[in-house]
Structures are given as C-alpha cells and as structure tokens.
Amino acid sequence: MVLDSASLPSAPASGRIAGAIGLVLIGVIIIAALFAPWLASADPFDLAGPALAGPSPNHIMGTDAIGRDLFSGVLYGTRTSLLIAITVGALASAFGVTIGMIAGYYGGFADDFLMRMTELFQVLPRFFLAAVAIALLGPGVDRVIVVLALTSWPVLARVVRAEILALKQLDFVLASEALGATKFHLFKNVFLPHVLPAVLVLVGLLMGQVLLTEASLGFIGLGDPNAMTWGTLAGQAQGFFRVAWWLALFPGLAISATVLGLNLIADALSSRVQNPAGISATE
C-alpha cells in the first residue's frame, strides 16, 4: 500500500521545510561529534573551572558540581550517542532485514518460527531488560548496544516480511526465478533494493527511540562511567535544581534536537517512498 499524501504529517511544501530542518539539526550534531576535540574548551573529565558556575564566556554551558565544563561534556556526549545509535541501527537492520526476508520468502515453518521469535522480542520491555542486563553484567556501551539491537529488529523484520510477501508474487520476481537466479542474487539484487527505502525510514525513527532509551538509562545512573553520555549528564542535574538550572537544560536540549532531527528526516523520507506499513514517527 502506498501511503497517500493525506495521512502524512505535512504538505509537500512544509514537509520539505521540516525535512530540511531535520537535515540541519543532524548535520550540526555530526559536525559536533567529528570535531569535538577541536570545539571543546576543555577535556570533559577535567576539573576546568569553579564548581556549579553558570554559563559564561569561559564555560558557555556552565560547569557541574565538581567544576567540569558542561559544553565539552555535551560535545563528547554526541560521540557516544551517535556511536550507539548508528551501531544499533546497523545491527537491527541486518537482523531485521535478514529475518524478514527469510520469513517472507520461505513461509511455512520458517515463517511461523521466526514470527513467534519476533513477537517475543517485540514485547520485551527494552528499558527494563537493559536495566537488568546492566545490573547483572556491569555498565558498558557494548551491553547497551546489544540489548537495544536485540529489542529493535522486530519492527523491521515485520515490515520487510510484509513487503516480500507482496513482492514474491510479482512477475519480475517470478521471471528472475525462472531464469535461474540464485537465492542470494534474488535477496540481494531483487528484494533488497525494494525494501531499502522503507527500511531507511524505519531505521531513522528507530535510532531516535534508541537515543531516548539510552539517555534514560544514563539518567538513572546506568551509563558507562568511562564515556560521556547525555543521559548521565542530565542525571547529575537531579540534585541541583535550585542552584544550577543549566545542568538540566543543555544535555536534554542536545538529545531533543537530535531525536527531532531524526524524526523530521524520517517523516520527510516516508512521504517520498512507497510506504508499505504506513510508517510514521510515532509508531
């Protein structure tokens, strides 16, 4: 089913503007991540100034309870967040696309088995699973990535499967099979290009969700102590509401801007591509 323009979030004109805003936001974030060492005014772990100093020319986002520069922390946090979002996005697409293609193409027992697995992983409350896994295995960026990837692929698998079910009946696919195309050729050169647009939209939205979950984990104190993360920074603000509003404001702002950018881009993309599942930012 092609998503008709009526059910899109905005008209072509405002949709293009929204997409452009998204691109700018994500562009800024990527530049911040790439050039963090040059842009930062201090090492994010260094005691660079007085404790709990408000925003000033020296520390444009202020300092935290032990005098670390918040702006540098937020900049370096960009790297951790993007690393997690991109790795989870890549792993979840690899799992989701492979499982969705196999289930959709072969049907029968493989389909049943894989779809039951998909349902199981879809109901797992990822936030609690991550909390338990970190509590048992210790904190670390790698565990966060594994748990988030494990709980993220089901949506992709379902959408890809639905696409393949529709595709495999079509004449050009049958022709390709009749000509003796190998399964590998069929998956890689026939199916993949067709599911890719929908997968890209979904992965964009998914990375936004991943960032939010990762931030929440950092916020409740489950972040990697050896990495700067936005969630951990925001968690520090909890004890200083009355004295240091900047600690609460800036890390959350960075997270929101990134997630909004991803959602805007995904929404703009979904209006351009054939959208089998009527995917949009809020599903």
């Binding site: 979030p9 905005s10 929204a18 936004g208 939010l212 931030a215 929440s216 916020f219 969630g231 925001a234 968690g235 603000a237 909890q238 509401f241 509003w245 609460a248 404001l249 890390p251 959350g252 702002l253 997270i255 929101s256 997630v259 909004l260 991803l262 959602n263 805007l264 929404d267 930012a281 809020t282």
Partner: peptide
Amino acid sequence: SGAVLTLYSAPAFWLGQLAIL
C-alpha cells in the same frame, strides 16, 4: 503536528526537569 512531534522527540526526564524548573 510540529508541537506534538517536538514533545515526542524530547526525553521524558528532560520535560520533567523543565517542568520542575
């Protein structure tokens, strides 16, 4: 649509912190 998408993109703890402040 823009306002609700922005709310949706913000982490819950941040909205809470801003509301407190």
